[in-house]
Design a protein around this nucleic acid. Structure first.
Lengths: 242, 242
DNA sequence: CGATGATTTGACGAGCCTCAAGGTACGTGG
DNA sequence: CCACGTACCTTGAGGCTCGTCAAATCATCG
């Protein structure tokens, strides 16, 4: 039932660094199975030490941290191809929680094999570091967006980011893609209140820039949105796939 | 003139994961020299592909990104022991710039040897991933601080963070430590204006919580400050030293 | 058909930004 | 030795963005 790595549907997307035959074989040995979870299911808990690591095969999810006063900060949105649990793999415990926003299929790896895998496949280990660096890159951008941009700019940035990643994963059809998130999620990602997020989203709708409603995100004018978001429309850099 | 890794003054600090004799030897072979730069000197530029990687030995610095409209987001403060240039090492180009805030001494490594080093010393490669995960951890917290906290809370968080790290590096004497940064730096770190940062810092001073003036940061009541910052006063997790 | 969760809209006030000006320390050159 | 420039810190006034509170609408579901 589980997809063999040689048939992995993710690998054909150009966002991922090509894998050698040996890489694929190594992953196949590392992979212990597949997991399917429903929308809303928690996958990893902040502070926990999961015995398993994952790669998202299908579906979307959220990484988030909870604050002492009950708040929630979305750290990132999870797309197919994202590696989940790296922090538990190296540091021994997660710094954020992970939860599914749609039905998800995940490749499962054993944490106990992680170091062994690293030692016998240093080139894959290098790729894991690369992935961590990509995440660091993204978080730096997110910090800039939250810290230095107005609500309109920040939300433009977020929608643009999501859309471009979706485009690269082949999830965009006719300028639209499915988004299983709630407005509250986006608000918690950009450090805005739900109310203000809602009003700002309608502003983007009025201006014919981006329309997110009924679980569908449609973007008409990428260029204009990029100007507001204050980003160059460069393609997202290639990354390894685990 | 250059310090041999076996004599490295950083290793005695308990914040760093102990290194095996072999680790030390590996680093010694990887290290190609030392670099001393004056305060204000740029070390790495965003988008560049530095031929060299560094570890901060002495002194402090800043990591920052610049936005299209001329703004600046401080991504992190650099302390002795921090590894610099990882993104260039794996991704080929830096996502942020690095600059010295005080006179700094740096260990220098050759980027061209990076992959080779990784392959022949997978346990050190693992530690590099660990470092990247630590950075990811920190950026997640920073995002939470900027996104979900008021100016008073955010600045308390930042000063606390800096102070705790300084404490672990033995830089704190009699509840005080040197801070070579400007108020503008802290403002750019937390996404606040200089003016409001200034006023909020005086509020912390009035309330006898933290006093940062004349390049000295003094914290009297860590516990109270932690309450305002909304963090647990747990020690910072151990990390590898490169 | 009541209950729950998500989205939407309005009113109001506070936190933070911007603009503006002044103060202090320090270095440089006449 | 003093005038001047520069860099950083400080303080005040006014206004806009955004958060909070409150309530209505709508869809889904048992």
């Amino acid at each position: 039932m589980a997809t063999p790595c040689s048939q992995c549907p993710l690998r054909r997307h150009p966002i991922f660094k090509p894998m050698s035959e040996q890489d694929v074989k190594a992953m196949q040995k590392f992979k212990v199975g597949e997991l399917i979870i429903e929308a809303g299911t928690p996958l990893l808990i902040e502070g926990s030490n999961s015995p398993q690591l994952f790669t998202a095969l299908r579906g979307m999810g959220l990484r988030y941290k909870t604050t002492l006063d009950g708040g929630r900060q979305i750290v990132n949105f999870i797309f197919p191809g994202d590696f989940i649990g790296l922090q538990a793999g190296v540091m021994g415990e997660m710094a954020h929680s992970v939860e599914a926003s749609s039905k998800m299929t995940l490749c499962v790896f054993n944490r106990s094999e992680f170091w062994n895998f690293y030692k016998t496949h240093p080139e894959r280990g290098f790729d894991i570091t690369w992935l961590a660096a990509v995440e660091e890159h993204f978080l730096g951008e997110a910090l800039t967006a939250v810290g230095r941009r107005s609500a309109l700019e920040a939300l433009s940035w977020a929608l643009l980011r999501i859309f471009l990643r979706g485009e690269q994963m082949g999830l965009v059809h006719n300028r639209s893609m499915e988004l299983p998130f709630r407005q509250q999620d986006l608000a918690d990602a950009m450090g805005l209140s739900l109310v203000h997020t809602n009003k700002t989203l309608s502003k983007l709708r009025e201006r014919q820039l981006a329309n997110w409603s009924d679980g569908q995100l449609t973007i008409n004018d990428l260029a204009k949105l990029a100007v507001i978001a204050k980003v160059e429309l460069e393609s997202i850099p290639q990354r390894p796939l685990m």
